[in-house]
Write a protein that binds this DNA or RNA. Structure first.
Lengths: 128, 128
DNA sequence: ATTAGCACTAACCTTTTGTTTACTACTAAC
DNA sequence: GTTAGTAGTAAACAAAAGGTTAGTGCTAAT
């Protein structure tokens, strides 16, 4: 048997700290849709219906509420162009959303490697 | 107005690729509990009840089913010590789980910075 | 003149996720 | 001998997340 709390790698306090910080992140980014929406946004898709087409499977109701949540957390800015008619709305990723690029890229790398692992294939590099 | 699909940053295909790989990752790691359990595991907590104490708020039923899912995906190994009585069970993170350390660390960093941002404080470095 | 597109929202319903309680059967400590 | 700990599972239920349908009021294209 390995463990009688002698060879824990992190103390309870350290473990709790690590848990706390990823919980803080997941409070903002967690769930099925938020990171996907961010990806579509930083890819340059900024209009509501366009986002719904990119983030396949999301309903208008959920997209709407997720965008509000991302806006509250400073990751998107909602811009209404009232000079045009009918009114055009854009959702622009903020500068703060840029701080997610590294995370998204690493998560994507892991996903790509995991997929090739379970498929028993080599990893290709043709991803963006 | 910024965007009439002239200044998209990534093409639809590139955006779809990026979405696909993070979806692959989130299929394995998504949800409220999986990453937290991984953190507790790599911190050296390997027994069922111990894990339930570290990952605060999780119920035995959910912990049990999440551990099964992590095992299926090669991130944990369930080891039964039948030589002892009563039987002792350990959940050990696999080598494959090590590939998540970078991701977890970056997610934690983002969470820490985000928290200090919304609290208007400086970022401290006393995290593990 | 009809159809599709725009940016959503409300009401209602289903699915997923999670909780609570109780139970197993045995051991170790107080 | 009572209490707590071990590693869970089953059943019943509650809460959270998400989907579906319908609709607004206007424009632009066919």
């Amino acid at each position: 048997m390995k463990n009688k709390n002698q060879n824990v790698i992190y103390t309870e306090v350290e473990c709790a700290k690590n848990l706390a910080v990823v919980e803080d992140a997941m409070y903002v980014l967690g769930g099925k849709w938020k990171l996907r929406i961010v990806i579509a946004l930083v890819s340059g898709y900024t209009r509501f219906n366009e986002l719904q087409r990119r983030v396949t499977g999301i309903s208008a109701r959920v997209l709407s509420s997720e965008l509000k949540s991302l806006e509250l957390n400073g990751l998107v800015e909602r811009i209404v162009h009232s000079e045009s008619f009918p009114v055009i709305v854009e959702y622009l990723p903020t500068e703060y959303a840029e701080t997610l690029k590294n995370l998204v890229s690493i998560l994507g790398d892991w996903g790509r490697k995991h997929k090739s692992k379970i498929q028993g294939r080599e990893v290709s590099n043709d991803t963006v």
